[in-house]
Amino acid sequence: MLSSPFITRPLTVDRIMLRVLYALLPGITLYVWYFGPAILVSIALAVTAALATEALMLKLRDRPVRPFLADYSALLTGVLIALSIPPLAPWWLPVVGTAFAIAVAKHLYGGLGSNPFNPAMIGYAVLIISFPQEMTQWLSPQGMGHSVLTYGDQLRYVFSGVLPVGMQLDALTMSTPLDTMKTQLHLGMPMSDIRDLPIYGRLAGKGSEMVAAGFALGGIYLLIARIIPWQLPLAFLGTLFALSGIFNLIDPAHYAPPLFHWFSGAAMIGAFFILTDPITSPTTAKGRIAFGIGAGLLTFLIRAYGGFPDGVAFATILMNMCVPLIDAWTQPRIFGKKKGSER
């Protein structure tokens, strides 16, 4: 016999995931606008790999395939991985990353709902650790590189690794704004000169700042639609802003300003689409604030002092590990119980 309640009005998992996917559209559109359609190929590859791996793992684990494929969670993981790797990456890069994310980071932990780490970030981490070279060849924004690839050339390169005659990969790619900043600071160039380099736009990297703004736009939609809790992005972006602001005020020659941090790298997509993954983030309001602050702090520390140019992925993974602890420490007071009373 079934138990009450007999009526439900849920916003089902698949609809939640679908809305998150919609929210990614502005960012992706701007991505294509500024960097060409290679990213769409990456997304298609990653999504195909994600769904295929998901189906395979479900089969192996003897779980029903269709309802789980239809929940869009694997698809979302694929899209997020594609967005975090260089668009001109060889075809196997998004495939390997996504397959690893779905098979190891998701299903070996028990599948949807049981994974302690954000699968997309694990996939990204695996790629950047295993294939650092491929992972640093970012496409220059349209018109920035020394030469321009046609759409057809982009596709051909992704699948065959062959560039048009006389073209060098070097001429097409460059390091990310964050990476460039790190390298130049390393070489002793002051921040003001670095910001004058041609790859920088008004706030951060030319083009990439607009993509970040697109993701922020989608994030704001998610906030308004109450798909994601407000505490996470607010605490994360707030901490990142505050920390970079303080350091920038003290030593503007060596520390980038807060808005640069906001609109560089994965800060925006991380704040609204990655940290907010409910499965791998805390469940309590206070816990979410702590989680956001921790992720912001780690991101800033890794960007400023770490070995990698961007820190969002590693900050997310590190904070994912702390979630059970954060949850345990931030249990809310329940109705009719005094704060801090014996549980």
Binding site: P132, Q133, T136, Q137, L169, D170, T173, S175, T183, H186, L187
Partner: peptide, 18 residues
């Protein structure tokens, strides 16, 4: 070579050879 010198390098890692 990127800085105008005579040494080759691998894309993505210029700090080390420098």
């Amino acid at each position: 070579r990127k800085d105008g010198g005579m040494f080759e390098y691998m894309a993505g890692a210029t700090v080390t050879p420098r």
